[in-house]
Design a binder for these strands. Structure first.
Length: 933
RNA sequence: GCGAGGGUAGCCAAGCCAGGCCAACGGCGCCAGACUUAAGAUCUGGUCUAUAAGUAGUUCAUGGGUUCGAAUCCCACCCCUCGCACCA
């Protein structure tokens, strides 16, 4: 009975049948299981990396559905945010790269692409595509609950959420330095950058030197070095500005003035002063009161900080070299570096050490930045301040920096000045990005101590898979501070109390899992009626259903449905979301929902690679999920993604590996159909059935723990290898009728992973009388059918045949006959003693304590030593089974023909003691002596 | 730099928490044989080294240490991945 498996022929009908059946409603008869996934932002096509994120939850959903749970697996689309606006704009501008990506890689038809100048069209198009591909992959999603985050009903939900969060004082207005594009007039995220996404915002302190009636601010990352300043540096080429900044007179570069304006400072230009005019003038150190000269230096960059810097030649390589260069010309020879930090492995003047060790010729040497970094790092992590640092003497650099910064800002008129760590930070519009302070921005205060504490207290109740990520959740909870939650541009919900702002995408997606429970019903209600009171009733049980703008029965129904499903059981997401989204969720649930409705578990995934490289749409290194499904079939894609690595490990998609998975599915198909003709009984049936019970138990255990790869290894590779042995043992004879039962169990074990194939086999083998395999009962291991004795016999047989074969391979004689010499009773006694011994080192003594054995003399000590070795090499379970006694003669006699067929030799079975062969003496229990001749 | 995780034979990947069941599960690839007109598929065996007897030797990023015994425990060091915030 052979019939090819052609996925494209079987998939459509099965899929059509499934879709309505996965619509899940509350069922009081059953326990529920609610799983959900971080919803996608549909701005492009799905690639295989996305696939696993949705397939693994589906495998879990299908598994538990078969185990009798009422399972909810919903899906929606996150449309909030700005990226699609940019995409639409670039398409409108006929940007080549974008058109190529969408028209080419994503294969959007030309007539559709024309309409992509409208952002909503883009997300709707891809949302439909996502749904289509997800359905093609057989995801058991309840599609009635699909929504997008910009429908009015959802907006009402978000307004309700923030009414509470804001009401609790957790949303505050504040100022915050952001990367900002003056041209686009908006903050830019990593996604918006053309260049420079590795740049960070650095926080400098302006140390204010007094210069006559003016102040000279010097930007520094190391304010504690104030004690070692010998001079200031100015660039003679720079035309500095005299300016009034926040009511004080400052000297700064033109660029600095512009940056200060962006950072909320009032700057008025008063005049100009050339760098040359500053040189050799004196300024007063605000901390020590010392007068220091202003010296010329070419390395001073007007586009960095204020355009003037303070010089600490003992600890800053740049300063050291600049001073050295001048002194070599005979100038300023009265200046000596002031050492203020002691750091291991460096002398008194660390900057001198490092510069001279590396033989740096001048201040323009390209290695300077690297050396500076090296020394700064060493001093920061290991340095201590010297005696000459006043009250800060003896402190670690780390501590002193913090203290000095605070002191400067609070008492000495310093300000913080923010600067990008690189200059080439370019917005997608092509213009340079600066740091700007936004002061009417809204923040969610995740730094709130009470709130943090509540989340910390909740964390132990949360089941986390894998367990290793708990530390990261703990740490993120600690680390979160104010999160800017509003944006000026993008799609989304307006902040109800300040409608010129919109909620930012990570802030409007923290408790939407609750919304899923009612989304299919609420979408039919006029959004105007969805007042906070309605949500208070539905989600919190507050108020009276009779007094709401919506119908009382509807309100009660929504409440009931929410309570049936909530809290959710598992949320699945890639690990990169731990540090924001996944932890945000915990905060918001804690703030809104009562203790019994907090999230129960999360499963965190690893990342995906394509042919060993990171997947990236922009670099074209992606394989579209739809293409994969078309080329290999949905089941193959599923089985590969589930089986190639455990969910939390990174996986690598390689087409050649995927192909072999396809073959495996076909192999199962063949094995199941082959078994249809089985009938009668065989001596090996009990063994196969026994093994199957253990495969079922193991696969079930693994799936319960989300170990999909391990589960597949049991459910697929394990069963295949058992069947292989079974068929081998039958030596071509008809399979027993029990195989049909085994196949029925096997199909069900595999159904969560390869549902299409399983469904088709279920039907072909006529087991679909009671419905789809997707809803069939998950097999349960029957303890009574586990037959250890039979398994041990087969194991003995298997090992012995292997041994004979390896001997045959080694000896180069034309063998005709093999004699199996079975170990005598007394050696079984030895085995029993050895296996029962606590300490295997002294076991020979224990054996010899037995009088009967001692009488055997050296023979007994040899046997004892060999037995120790043997016992060490066997699984403990097997050892105890052997100790209980195995009738080896019967085992081999019964399987004589099999052994003869496998080895091609005549087989004789004898008691070792009756054999004259020298080798017979080496017989041990479970290891008969083998004589080949 | 800081935080989290990881480095196992040609590749992927178990084992490590609870040291002896480990030459190290499983899969892929590769080699040989069977079947076949042939190819493919399938089946069988092999795949660190040596071996005319089922064995022995050397391996689990690197260097030390603990132990009768270490892939597994401890210390040091190198490398990789993820996160480090206005953003999906």
């Amino acid at each position: 009975m052979t019939e090819n498996l052609v996925m494209s022929e079987i998939e459509p009908a099965i899929r059509e049948n499934w879709i309505p059946q996965f619509e899940s409603n509350p069922n009081p008869e059953k326990d529920k299981l609610y799983v959900n996934v971080a919803f996608p932002y549909p701005s492009g096509a799905m690639h295989v990396g996305h696939g696993r994120t949705y397939i693994i939850p589906d495998v879990v959903a299908r598994f538990w559905r078969m185990r009798g749970k009422q399972v909810l697996f919903p899906m929606a689309f996150h449309v909030t945010g700005a990226p699609v606006l940019g995409i639409a704009k670039r398409i409108a501008n006929k940007d080549e790269k974008t058109l190529k990506l969408y028209g080419g890689l994503y294969r959007v038809p030309a007539e559709t692409l024309e309409k992509f100048t409208d952002p909503i069209t883009i997300v709707n198009y891809f949302a439909d595509e996502y749904q289509r591909v997800m359905q093609q992959l057989g995801l058991s999603i309840d599609w009635r609950r699909r929504f997008t985050t910009i429908i009015p009903q959802y907006s009402k939900f978000i307004e309700w959420q923030y009414t509470h969060i804001h009401g609790q004082g957790k949303v505050q207005r504040g100022e915050y330095p952001v990367r900002y594009c003056p041209h686009c007039d908006q903050p830019v995220g990593d996604h918006d950058l053309l260049e420079g996404d590795s740049a960070e915002v650095m926080h400098f302190v302006f140390v204010m030197y007094q210069f006559g009636e003016y102040k000279i601010p010097c930007a520094t990352l190391r304010p504690e070095t104030i004690f070692g300043v010998t001079n200031l540096w100015a660039n003679p080429e720079t035309n500095y500005l005299k300016a009034e900044v926040d009511g004080e007179k400052w000297i700064i570069s033109e660029e600095a003035a512009e940056k200060l304006r962006m950072q909320k400072h009032e700057v008025t230009e008063l005049g100009r002063i050339m760098g040359t005019e500053l040189i050799d003038q004196k300024a007063i150190n605000p901390y020590t009161g010392a007068e220091v000269p202003i010296l010329p230096a070419s390395f001073v960059d007007s586009d960095m900080g204020s355009g003037l810097v303070m010089s600490v030649p003992a600890h800053a390589p740049f300063d050291y070299i600049a001073l050295r260069d001048l002194q070599q010309q005979g100038k300023y020879t009265d200046i000596t570096p002031i050492s203020l930090v002691t750091v291991p492995n460096y002398g008194k003047i660390p900057a001198q050490d490092i510069v001279e060790k590396n033989k740096i010729p001048n201040q323009d040497d390209p290695r300077m930045d690297e050396l500076t970094q090296e020394l700064y790092t060493a001093e920061f992590s290991k340095g201590k301040l010297n005696e000459n640092c006043g009250e800060h003497a003896g402190k670690s650099v780390r501590q002193a920096r913090e203290d000095v910064t605070r002191e400067f800002v609070e008492q000495r008129g310093s300000i913080m000045f923010h600067e990008m760590s690189q200059k080439r930070v370019i917005c997608r519009c092509g213009n340079r990005v600066y740091v700007r302070i936004l002061d009417d921005q809204w923040f969610i205060n995740y730094g709130d101590a009470e709130w943090k504490k509540a989340v910390h207290e909740e964390l132990p109740n949360l089941e986390l898979v894998p367990a290793e990520v708990r530390a990261e959740f703990e740490r993120t909870t600690d680390w979160l501070r104010e999160w800017p939650c509003s944006r000026r541009v993008g799609l989304g919900t307006h902040v109800p109390w300040d409608p010129k702002w919109l909620f930012e995408p990570l802030s409007d997606s923290t408790i939407y899992m609750a919304y899923y429970t009612i989304s299919h019903k609420i979408e039919k209600i006029d959004a105007e009626k969805l007042t906070p009171a309605v949500f208070d009733y539905v989600f919190l049980g507050k108020g009276d259903a009779a007094n709401l703008p919506i119908d009382e029965a509807t309100a009660k129904d929504l409440r009931a449905e929410f309570l049936y499903w909530y809290p959710y059981d598992y949320r699945f997401s890639a690990k990169d979301l731990i540090s924001n989204h996944l932890t945000f969720q915990l905060f918001h649930h804690k703030a809104i929902f009562p203790a019994e409705l907090q999230p129960k578990g999360m499963v965190v995934f690893g990342m995906g690679l394509l042919n060993g490289m990171k997947m990236s749409s922009s670099k074209g290194n992606v394989f579209l999920l739809e293409d994969a499904a078309n080329e290999f079939g949905a089941d193959t894609v599923r089985m590969f993604l589930v089986g190639s690595a455990e969910p939390w490990q990174d996986f690598d998609w390689r087409n050649e590996l995927v192909l072999s998975v396809k073959k495996q599915i076909e192999r199962m198909w063949q094995l199941v159909l082959d078994a249809e003709s089985a009938e009668g009984e065989t001596p090996i049936d009990a063994w196969l059935v026994s093994r199957m019970q253990q495969r079922i138990a193991a696969a079930t255990k693994c799936l319960t723990a989300f170990q999909t790869r391990q589960a597949l290894q049991e459910a697929y590779n394990g069963v295949v290898s058992d069947l292989a042995w079974y068929r081998k043992r039958l030596a071509g004879a008809q399979q027993g009728a029990v195989v049909k039962d085994v196949m029925s169990q096997w199909i069900r074990l595999m159904a969560p992973v390869i549902p299409y194939t399983a469904e088709e086999l279920w039907k072909k083998t006529g087991r679909d009388a009671n419905g789809l395999v997707s809803f069939a009962d998950w097999p349960v291991a029957d303890e009574a059918k586990i037959n250890k004795a039979v398994e041990v016999s087969e194991e003995l047989l298997q090992r012995t045949v292997e041994d004979i074969q390896s001997i045959l391979k080694l000896v180069q004689i034309e063998a005709k006959k093999v004699t199996l010499c079975i170990a005598p009773e007394w050696k079984k006694e030895v085995f029993k003693i050895v296996s029962g011994a606590e300490d295997k080192r002294n076991v020979v003594k224990t054996v010899m304590a037995n009088e009967a054995l001692r009488a055997k003399g050296k023979e007994a000590t040899d046997a004892a030593q060999q037995t120790v070795k043997l016992v060490h090499s066997l699984a403990p379970e097997l050892v105890s089974a052997i100790a209980e006694g195995v009738d080896e003669v019967s085992v081999f006699t019964a399987a004589k023909e099999f052994v003869e067929k496998e080895t091609g030799l005549t087989v004789e079975i004898v008691e070792a003691e009756t054999s004259g062969h020298a080798k017979a003496k080496s017989a041990l229990p479970f290891k008969p002596a083998i004589v080949v001749e």
